[in-house]
Design a protein around this nucleic acid. Structure first.
Length: 422
RNA sequence: GGAGAGAUGGCCGAGUCGGCCGAAGGCGCUCGCCUGCUAAGCGAGUAUACUGGGAAACCGGUAUCGAGGGUUCGAAUCCCUCUCUCUCCGCCA
């Protein structure tokens, strides 16, 4: 959510900068609701002030018969207040609804662009493997090794669900532990294991709602949703709180499964393990001081990259352009891992600074010192990493001519010393 | 699922028959005084949001005692609904 006062005072700038996201933005509705609200508010508050003053007078009059006129007068005032308050409520809801659907303003360093193709490559890491044979896609490798079972996954649930078996299941678990250990022991994040379903307020706080309800799995009977990412429960840990400046930045890491409807991605990545309705992810979340948030974003990105470096998987980092930026983000770096079968890099992590956009929605603030005014924190998060796609990358990059897959050295301690599958 | 108890400021905790209650008292914290050091003591201060005015410091108004609604000139206090927490019973990994 953007600052109402900022929009009010910089309407054209805001429209223009939001326009770089690719959708025309018209804030005239906002302006109208804002004006209406303040008009009604002033009127109502004036009457309330009068009522409060006269009520106090009445309280001092011993003989209530002498207050009869004033009581009658105030009865009328209260009626008017009631009407105004009702109108106000309608306008405020409209204004709120308006605000909740306005995306974040891209950071000034976010490259202007229309789509994915305008993203900017920042750096590449690692050697792209050269195979003396035709590199197989991960789903063929996984199926022939008996560690990924798409058919039975679909039988159990449906399309885009996969059964991990034997060393495949073990590798998922190993990667989760490997990543969590790295981030908690080397990068000093605090581990969290949050609920995997959240309420509507939490989804609104991080920006999934109200606009993207069709992407979420919703439970029946209660207003709970399956989380599409750990960002939601972990960021909402501090919803409604005022943190101490001295404890910032707060750095949390969490493993959770993620559930996404993938509405609108029909036909994309239909085969294999790339795009699932349920996948595992280790997430990194930070709450930082505004002036430190971009430095923290660089650190967070480096922490995520470290996973791929240790696993010796080639990747590149791209900076998303304004047209490709998520709703809540001001700036995003994607980490893309090399997939030999596709002869291209595919997203495996997305690291974003949301600045105060989520903090304002979720009311997460901090006080620099005892007497300081509360300020909104900046929230950040990034995948560290998507576990399923890491499995995909390992299978493809570490595949051997005989169909076996070598296990990255860093992962072996987590797989009982296993050196290869098959 | 059944029965009961509760929800007040950073924390603890008071709030009588509705009015002078944004809310006693204590703890904590901040600043000052005092004091070889520490402790104790003394004095002052210590919520948030919106809104009007002001360049600002700041001044005024409104709202907030779990949430929403009702009664009333006036609600932390009375009534209704909901949510959450705790205790007991049942069930269960």
């Amino acid at each position: 959510m953007l600052d109402v006062k900022y929009i009010r005072d910089n309407l054209e700038t805001v429209e223009e900068r939001l326009g770089t996201r690719g959708e025309a933005v018209n804030l005239s509705r906002f302006r109208e609701f804002d004006l209406q609200r303040r008009g009604l508010l002033q009127e109502a508050e004036k009457l309330k002030a009068l009522r409060n003053a006269v009520s106090e007078e009445i309280s001092r009059i011993k003989d209530k018969s002498q207050a009869r006129d004033r009581i009658a007068e105030m009865r009328e005032v209260s009626q008017k207040v009631k009407v105004l308050d009702e109108q106000l409520k309608v306008v405020e809801e409209a204004l709120e609804g308006c605000l909740l659907t306005i995306p974040n303003i891209p950071h000034e360093t976010t490259p202007i662009g229309k789509a994915e193709t305008d993203n900017v490559e920042i750096r590449k890491w690692g050697e792209i493997p050269q195979f003396a044979f035709a590199a197989k896609p991960h789903y063929e490798i996984g199926e022939s090794l008996g560690i990924l079972d798409f058919e039975r996954g679909a039988r159990i649930t449906g399309a885009r669900f996969t059964l991990c078996k034997d060393a495949g299941a073990r590798m998922e678990r190993a990667l989760i532990n490997f990543m969590l250990d790295l981030h908690t022991e080397q990068h000093k994040y605090v581990e969290m294991l949050p609920p995997f379903m959240v309420n509507r307020e939490s989804m609104t706080g991080t920006g999934q709602l109200p606009k993207f309800e069709e992407d979420l799995f919703r439970l029946e009977g209660v207003d709970y949703f399956l989380i599409p990412t750990a960002e939601v429960p972990v960021t909402n840990i501090h919803r409604g709180e005022i943190l101490k400046g001295s404890e910032l930045p707060l750095c949390y890491t969490a493993y959770t499964p993620c559930f996404r409807k993938e509405a609108g991605s029909y036909g994309k990545d239909t085969r294999g393990y790339i795009r699932q309705h349920q996948f595992n992810k280790v997430e990194l979340v930070k709450f930082a001081r505004p002036e430190e948030s971009y430095r923290e974003l660089d650190l967070l990105l480096a922490d995520a990259e470290k996973v791929l470096q240790l696993l010796q998987l080639p990747y590149r980092v791209v900076e998303l352009c304004t047209g490709d930026l998520g709703f809540s983000a001001a700036k995003t770096y994607d980490i893309e891992v090399w997939l030999p079968s596709q002869n291209t890099y595919r997203e495996i992590s997305s690291c974003s600074n949301f600045e105060d956009f989520q903090a304002r929605r979720a009311s997460i603030r901090f006080r620099e010192n005892e007497k300081a005014k509360p300020e909104f924190v900046h929230t950040l998060n990034g995948s560290g990493l998507a576990v399923g796609r890491t499995v995909v990358a390992i299978l493809e990059n570490y595949q051997q001519a005989d169909g076996s897959v070598v296990i990255p050295e860093a992962l072996r301690p987590y797989m009982g010393g296993m050196e290869k599958i098959g």
